[in-house]
Structures are given as C-alpha cells and as structure tokens.
Design a protein around this nucleic acid. Structure first.
Length: 287
DNA sequence: AAAGGTTGCAACCGCATCAGG
DNA sequence: ACCTGATGCGGTTGCAACCTT
C-alpha cells in the first residue's frame, strides 16, 4: 500500500486562502473524514457540508470519492477473487463499461476498483495479442483458454480484434458496402477499453481454441441493449436483412438477475448463414 | 546498485442528470 | 422555463512501488 504524500500531487494548493487541496489524502484528513462520518452516522449527507464541517480543505466531490472508494467501512480489500473476476467478466459482457452497475453486484467493491482491474486486464491482453501478431508465427495465433463465464462468451477476444484491425484493414468498409440494411450503419471501431464495438445488429463474434462463438447485440430494437439469439434462430434474407426464425428465449431484453446463455456458434454454419460477412471471417480460415 | 520501464491504483476532470429555488 | 449547486459516473492522469536490464 502506497503511503499518501501529505501534500498530494500539487503541493502549491496547501497554501492558505482556503484554496481547495488536491491530490492524495493525508492520514490526518482521512481521520477527520472518518470521525465526522461516524459522528453524523452518514445520514442526510451533503458532501460540501461534510467537507466544511469536518474541517477539510477539500471539495465535497473529493470527500465523497475518498469515502466511497477508500474509507467506507464495508469495503473489501485485496485482490479480486476468481469468483469476483468471473462476475466482472460476466457482467461486463452484458453491461459494458457500466462500472457502477457492475459494482452494485459486488459487495465491498467500488466502481473505480473494477474499472482499474478491467483496464489493466485489457491492457495485458492487448499486449499479449500484439506480441503474438508481430511474432514470426503470427499466423499461428496463440489463443488463450476460453473465457467462458457462466455460459456467457465474452465477445471481444483480443486476437479477433487484432484481426479486424490489422489483418483485414478494409474489412469494415467492405462489410459496410455489402450491407444494404435499412438502418444506420457504424463501422467497427476500437473502443478506448480495447474492445471492438461492432455495429448494432451485426453479430459480434470471437474465437478461441475450440472454435467460434458469437452473439448479436441489439438486432431488433435500437434502444434495447442486449439480444442474444442463437445462431439457429436467425436467417439472412435475400436483401441481407437479418430475420429471426424463433423468438424463443429472447422475447425480452436482458434484465438484471436474468441468467442468459449463449449458444456456441459453429464456424461453418456461421459462415454459411452470414455469407455477406465473409470478408471479416475469411482471416479465420485455418485457425 | 542504479537507471529506466512497467504496473496498480488513487484521485482528478468533465459531463450528465437531478432537485430546489 | 431557466439557473445553480449537488451528485454520480466514466474516462484519464500521474505517481509510487515494483520489476527488469
């Protein structure tokens, strides 16, 4: 555990004139805040008042953050357990970067903590991926064990991302041209978190050592976050519109607490059904 | 042992939303 | 309806500890 510097990053703000302090919290400040929170039972908080009444030269926002992320008595400490990691992966595959919602499912953990965990994990995996691609055996992709968490397949296998971004530079435009879908179209982009955001209503696909997997996000209604039809339940019509054969299992959008399952998609069948995506899928040949 | 690079994480920033005046 | 302050959230930054060379 790092010891906080008593003067934070910018120690010029320690000066008088009631300038708000910034930077790391000192043990004394922590003590003041903890004492005040204990005294006031944490009820009816107005954080700017907390800051004032506790005698802290901090903004309410800073106090709130410090309390929530560090001083709260019910916080867990230490590394995430493997169970917690599974929950994070599972929920992230469903919710995306909604850290506070994910944190709500992990008692004692903060959104900040989860976000940091996720970002460092993503960085690691991207690094691994790029090193495997730049190696002489780049075509022989070294795939990590599949991340199957409680039946949900994370869609953004870094190797897949790399293939989209590096091996098939024209893939997105090719697909865009080949999709006469009567909806707006956004090309795949690499998000800040290192994930490929596939266009809405396009299948999100990934791969692992055992084959191919995927799902479809938001195929049928723009404002619903998550639909996961099985491959068997969809067909591609002549005009390349995606049609659902069977609504079984996804009449409704995902709701908190639902236990969703994604069917594993067979590569050959997927290619057959989604022939117009072949420019994207062809790099996977031989993997 | 020292220098440089990497990692983990605390904290800040900016924006969105909401409530009260 | 508009303004203002408080709050919440996600993205980003910066620093200390750790690791590698």
């Amino acid at each position: 555990m790092k010891m906080p510097s008593p003067f934070g990053k910018n120690n010029n703000n320690v000066s008088s004139n009631y300038k708000m302090r910034k930077g790391l919290w000192s043990p004394e400040e922590d003590e003041k805040l903890v004492k005040y929170m204990a005294m006031s039972s944490g009820q009816g908080q107005c954080w700017s008042e907390v800051a004032r009444n506790a005698g802290l030269q901090r903004g309410g926002k800073s106090c709130r953050l410090r309390w929530i992320n560090y001083l709260r008595p019910d916080l867990k400490r230490g590394a995430f357990s493997s169970q917690e990691k599974e929950v994070i992966l599972h929920l992230h595959s469903l919710l995306g970067n909604r850290w506070s919602q994910i944190a709500a499912h992990l008692p004692g953990r903060t959104d900040n903590e989860i976000k940091n965990f996720w970002n460092s994990m993503t960085k690691k995996r991207l690094r691994n991926c790029s090193s495997s691609l730049t190696s002489p055996n780049a075509s022989n992709l070294s795939l990590e064990p599949r991340d199957v968490m409680q039946g949900i397949m994370p869609m953004r296998e870094p190797n897949m991302i790399a293939m989209f971004m590096d091996s098939t530079p024209s893939a997105s435009s090719t697909v865009a041209q080949s999709l006469p879908l009567n909806r707006s179209f956004d090309p795949p982009v690499l998000s800040a978190s290192g994930y490929v955001n596939m266009p809405k209503f396009m299948p999100q696909v990934g791969m692992d050592g055992d084959g191919f997997y995927g799902n479809c996000h938001g195929i049928f209604e723009e404002n619903r976050d998550l639909f996961i039809p099985t491959l068997e339940s969809i067909s591609i019509e002549e005009d390349n519109n995606i049609k659902v054969e069977s609504m079984e299992g996804f009449e409704t959008c995902w709701q908190e607490g639902d236990d969703l399952k994604v069917e594993e998609w067979d590569l050959e069948e997927l290619k057959c059904k989604l022939g117009f995506l072949s420019p994207l899928l062809s790099p996977l040949e031989g993997c």
